[in-house]
């Protein structure tokens, strides 16, 4: 896989949290519409790689180029704006605001972008229908099951029609049936909007939803396409 035509390219990333080295020369690239699994044992730096790629955490060194722009040259506000409008996120848990209803949670990214409440909630509802959770609109996250909540989270990640969807162990807290359902819906929705998906997981069966995988070990990434 060549970086040419890639939407998001990272090269030689280094990142340490105090004495703990999380990334030690990691590389990454992804095309529009591609689903790439990031695998590796726990503590290998998978999540850190995702955080760097998404502009949440600045790497200590190395370059990340999104859509032709070097992320390091962007201000924090610009990166936040990027995350709001071009990226979507699904995490393992703790991401839905417990006080807001499901539809308000899904509409939140749109509202952060300045869309009116009515408009945002209408769009949110179409995505909830797509993820088959529209009947939960008035419920609060505490009142729905884990699988339903995660689907609400996926709807929220997709509601802005992001160009890259970052998913960090999106099925980590779910049983295999619910996990599969979430993965089905997530990848279908991403493919239909030509969004790239960065899928961090340690589960092979979740990774199997990807087009290709890279393995992170001790902060170094290895593109498995090139191995074969």
């Amino acid at each position: 896989m060549t970086p040419a035509g890639s939407l998001l390219i990272a090269d030689d990333l280094h990142k340490a949290y105090g004495p703990t080295v999380a990334l030690d020369g990691a590389e990454f690239s992804i095309h529009p519409g591609e689903v790439v699994a990031v695998m590796g044992p726990s503590g290998s730096g998978k999540s850190t790689l995702l955080h760097c790629l998404a502009g949440i955490v600045p790497p200590d060194s190395g370059s990340i180029v999104y859509n032709g722009r070097e992320m390091a040259t962007m201000s924090d506000a610009e990166r936040s704006a990027l995350r709001r409008s071009e990226f979507g996120f699904v995490f393992q848990f703790g991401q839905l605001v417990p006080e807001l209803t499901c539809v308000e949670n899904v509409a939140l990214p749109l509202r952060l972008n300045g869309t009116s409440r009515k408009e945002a909630e209408r769009t949110a509802l179409t995505w909830m229908e797509r993820l088959e959770v529209d009947d939960l609109r008035g419920k609060r996250p505490g009142e729905v099951s884990g699988g339903q909540g995660q689907r609400v989270a996926v709807a929220r990640a997709l509601v802005t029609s992001p160009r890259v969807l970052f998913a960090d162990e999106p099925t980590g807290a779910l049983d295999s049936l619910n996990g599969e359902r979430v993965m089905d819906l997530l990848t279908d929705a991403a493919r239909s909007t030509n969004a790239a998906v960065v899928l961090v997981t340690h589960e092979a069966r979740v990774a199997a939803y990807s087009d290709r995988e890279i393995v992170v070990r001790d902060g170094k990434s290895r593109d498995m396409e090139r191995v074969v």
């Binding site: 955080h51 949440i56 936040s80 995350r83 952060l112 929220r156």
Partner: peptide, 13 residues
Amino acid sequence: KKLLSSLVAFGTR
């Protein structure tokens, strides 16, 4: 904490 971090992750000012 977790909620706040994730809100910031998806671009909340």
